[in-house]
């Protein structure tokens, strides 16, 4: 008799080991696990965005008024067009990726190479577009005045377009009067050499106020959204009063501290969520480039399987998937 049990008598039974109940390779399954956890991270960010938005539901910036620019088309208000283009680019690069995976199943090296290359190009176009979107957002449009309470006051006038009266935004550059600066910017060379400050806003609140007084057609628009779903426009007296009494800082563009488009949380979340997504796209491009060179060098041809392309493809599609949600919650809803 054997002193140890060498056979459990379960060979060939379902609990005898050696089963692959999910019928997926280790690498693919780990990629799925990563995707699930990353999806939870992104939904955490988007849910936090939802929280802040619900908190300021009556004064959240209207996306169509913020993202209106398209490259090479200056001065035209075209909301949605550019992001729709970006979305299409990303879906398109997802398609070339899945075509690469399909070509990999057929062990067709030339086609995998071509489709991986196109995927990388799509990814680069997307990251570039996002950089442009950021630059436009940071640079700002019309400028605004921030009040002591942190609210944003924007400017505009009523114009008649096709017989209908419409509120059109006016840039602070168009009406602010220039008063020779009373406050000089603190630089290392004119003050304490070991300290410096951020550059001063383009105008002082007083310059804006003087300009507003001189232009009787210009009115102030607050952050509050009215019954018609538009931002509230103040009367002339109220406009002057608000700027004079509450105005504290002139804001142009957006960064992590101030935001000319509305509550500063909007800019914070925009930078954080699209930035995190852009970082994913960027790392996806890097991974794709590595895999691309492996394909070109014939690594997978020799290995006899293009599963690596499939794994990196899963990640790439996931990035596309996340963008679909970011697109909805930042630009549509």
């Amino acid at each position: 008799m054997d002193s140890t049990v060498s056979s459990t008598g379960t060979e060939g039974k379902i609990w005898g080991g050696g089963n692959k109940p999910l019928k997926a390779s280790y690498g693919k399954m780990m990629m799925w696990f990563f995707i699930v956890s990353d999806a939870l991270t992104f939904s955490g960010f988007l849910a936090a965005y939802g929280f802040s938005r619900f908190k300021f539901i009556k004064e959240w910036p209207i996306a169509d008024e913020v993202f209106t620019h398209v490259p090479f088309l200056h001065g035209q208000e075209l909301p949605m067009i550019y992001v729709a283009f970006m979305t299409f680019i990303l879906i398109m690069s997802s398609v070339t990726m899945v075509l690469a995976v399909d070509a990999g199943h057929h062990m067709n090296k030339a086609k995998v190479t071509l489709y991986m290359f196109l995927t990388i190009i799509g990814g680069l176009i997307f990251v570039g577009s996002q950089a442009w979107e950021w630059a436009t957002f940071i640079q700002g449009d019309y400028g605004a005045v921030q009040t002591k309470g942190g609210n944003i006051l924007q400017f505009g006038e009523y114009v008649t377009v096709d017989g209908a009266e419409k509120f059109k935004r006016v840039s602070i550059d168009d009406f602010a009067v220039s008063i020779p600066d009373v406050r000089e910017e603190h630089e290392r060379k004119n003050g304490l050499w070991f300290r410096e400050e951020a550059s001063l806003p383009p105008y002082t609140v007083n310059e804006i106020f003087q300009g507003l007084e001189a232009n009787p057609n210009i009115l102030v628009r607050t952050q509050l959204i009215n019954e018609e779903g538009q931002k509230t426009v103040l009367s002339r007296e109220e406009s002057l009063k608000q700027i004079k009494e509450n105005g504290s800082l002139v804001v142009k563009g957006a960064n992590l501290r101030v935001n000319e488009y509305g509550t500063s949380l909007f800019a914070d979340f925009f930078f954080f969520i699209t930035g995190f997504h852009g970082f994913h796209v960027f790392s996806g491009v890097v991974l794709n480039i590595i895999i691309f060179f492996n394909v070109v060098l014939g690594t997978y041809e020799r290995r006899g399987s293009y599963e690596m392309v499939e794994k990196v493809g899963l990640y790439w599609h996931f990035v596309d998937l996340v963008w679909v949600f970011v697109f909805t919650f930042f630009y549509l809803v």
Binding site: L22, K23, M29, W32, V98, V101, L321
Partner: peptide
């Protein structure tokens, strides 16, 4: 995107549900 691009349609039910 998940079902056709990420081939979830071709995976087994257990993996699909797990994710």
């Amino acid at each position: 995107i998940t079902w056709d691009f990420m081939h979830m349609r071709d995976e087994v039910k257990a993996l699909r549900r797990m994710v």
